[in-house]
Simulated assay, not measured.
Amino acid sequence: AGMHGYISFIFSNAIITEAHDKKQLVAYLSESSDSIVVLDYTLFDINGIDEFLIIARRFPSVHWILFSNELSDNFMRRISAECNISMILKETSADEIHCALRCACHGERFICHQIANMLIQTPERRELSNNLTPTETDILRLIAKGMTVKEIASERISSIHTIVTHKKNIFRKLGINNVYEATKYALRAGLVEIVEYYI
């Protein structure tokens, strides 16, 4: 009821439809895929984050606002990489709820201050493969920061050939195939901060 009030107050002409389960939600989105979905993830019949992401990616023009108070640390970290999913908590201020709704209307993501602070202050740490050498770990960090092979070679005062060899070894050891996967690994391992990556 509170969210209805916020939406009606900000967008007087908004059409508000309620879905009571996953099947009904998917049916609504199939008819009107350019929507904003305000979802209490913990109260809905979605079987885990992977299923939620499948639904979210099925409707790429939908902007999601997850509105809950029991989102796990791991869940929030995974969702923070998705550009069309906003996150707010039930204790979030009215101003932030308004901002989240307005951002969604403009196709922008919004993360409330409490979640943003949690993401910045306690980055997820994934234990790096024991096979990575300190040099490879540092090169992985530089790759994740968006540096080219040439820039990494200059930074480390090495030859381009040496960096290319290290890069191939890193990809082979981690079982990854491209810079995107390397960046995701480095983010989850805490080699670069999420904020640093987006800047």
Rank of each mutant, 00 (worst) to 15 (best):
T92R: 01
A94P: 01
A100R: 02
S154F: 07
P60A: 13
E124R: 06
E155W: 05
E155R: 14
R141E: 05
L140W: 00
K145H: 04
E127H: 11
C112A: 12
I143P: 02
A94T: 15
P123D: 10
E91S: 13
E151R: 10
I143C: 01
N130K: 12
T135I: 12
R77T: 13
L128S: 06
C105I: 01
I97N: 04
F67S: 12
R141M: 09
I152D: 00
Q121L: 14
V149M: 09
S129M: 00
I85N: 01
L101Q: 05
I55V: 14
A100P: 02
I115A: 09
E155Q: 12
R58A: 10
E136H: 05
L119Q: 06
D95W: 05
A56I: 15
H63Y: 08
K145N: 04
V62Q: 01
E155M: 09
I143D: 00
N131G: 11
E127N: 10
A104R: 00
E70V: 15
P123I: 14
N84P: 01
R109E: 04
T135L: 09
V62P: 00
I115Q: 08
M118N: 10
F59P: 06
C105F: 02
M118D: 10
L128N: 07
E96G: 07
N84M: 04
P60V: 14
L101W: 01
K90Q: 07
S159Q: 08
S61R: 07
L89F: 04
R156P: 00
T135N: 06
S93Q: 01
I65Y: 03
